[in-house]
């Protein structure tokens, strides 16, 4: 690809000029918005900005206050619970559905269309539908009660102990189709001969999946994991639509905390500190992955 770049020609800057002009939007976005914006926020998280960003540094005070705020602790706990369960369930359900779809079934397209359509819908729509289905007065709870089981209680959105599971149900409905699709693509990428060899050796199907196929699909799992995980940290719209963070602050999440402090509480410093914590969480996920993925490739 580098055939046209001959070494030793003068005027480095103007070589390939059109390409550079065409890349200006990308460079600006990458450097000014992504890199610059991030650094700006991190720097201002060490200030005591209130209504307007001001450069008067107070060290780690905002972070200390952040970790002393019960609301932040609740939102972190929620994110941890939701994140772990969401990862486990969406990977399991997604893989199981993909494995079922891979059994040379009929109507594969129909099933795929059904499993994936929620992914086309927004989190707002998802949240509002599930808010309605989980409505204790009219939804699942009242239907089961009308069937005769009158003490049946299932009101996750109104019970602060289990509200995060109500959100999880909706999130899984929306997102597992995507995981299924990624897993199915991974399964299809596995050589038929592996299956034949396993069959010749008389290995039962579940063992083939567990000990041969899944280890072979490691890259697919890792990619999916990164995609789901970075989506989890961002979760915002769904909570806003489904519970508005309620009851009380029981279903608050970091992204909502950040938004509220930046645009309602007019406490920018808190917002910046909280968003920097979110950035840190993503970095913990992304950096090892990027290192394995790209660092390894250069050497190999």
């Amino acid at each position: 690809m580098a055939a046209h770049t001959q070494p030793g020609r003068p005027n480095q800057l103007f070589r390939n000029l059109n390409s550079k002009i065409a890349s200006i939007p990308m460079m600006l976005t990458a450097v000014v918005i992504f890199l610059g914006g991030t650094i700006w926020t991190v720097v201002y998280s060490f200030t005591n900005s209130k209504l307007l960003p001001r450069l008067s540094f107070v060290g780690l005070e905002q972070y200390e206050r952040l970790w002393d705020t019960p609301r932040w602790i609740v939102s972190i706990q929620n994110l941890a619970t939701y994140g772990c369960l969401s990862l486990i369930f969406s990977l399991t359900i997604g893989f199981l559905l993909a494995a079922l779809m891979d059994q040379k079934i009929r109507f594969e397209n129909t099933f795929r269309t059904i499993f994936l359509y929620p992914f086309a819908l927004s989190f707002i729509v998802t949240g509002l539908v599930w808010q309605w289905i989980l409505n204790p007065e009219f939804g699942v709870q009242s239907v089961v009660r009308s069937l005769g089981w009158t003490t049946f209680t299932f009101d996750p959105l109104y019970n602060s102990d289990i509200v995060i599971y109500g959100i999880l149900i909706a999130a899984l409905w929306q997102g597992t189709g995507l995981v299924m699709c990624l897993m199915l693509a991974g399964l299809r990428g596995i050589d038929e001969d592996i299956w034949k060899a396993a069959r010749v050796d008389g290995i039962p199907m579940w063992k083939t999946y567990l000990f041969i196929i899944i280890p072979m699909m490691r890259p697919v799992f890792v990619t999916t994991l990164v995609i789901i995980a970075s989506g989890i940290v961002r979760i915002y719209d769904l909570v806003v639509a489904q519970t508005s963070g309620g009851p009380g602050i029981a279903s608050d999440v970091p992204a909502k905390y950040v938004y509220d402090y930046m645009f309602f509480a007019q406490n920018l410093g808190q917002g910046f500190a909280a968003s920097t914590m979110m950035l840190l969480a993503v970095a913990i996920i992304i950096v090892p992955w990027a290192y394995l993925e790209f660092g390894g490739r250069k050497r190999g």
């Binding site: 991030t38 700006w40 961002r234 938004y259 920018l268 910046f272 920097t276 950035l279």
Partner: peptide
């Protein structure tokens, strides 16, 4: 996360 870049 978008929240990091929104205010700038």
């Amino acid at each position: 996360p978008y929240q990091v870049m929104i205010y700038p």
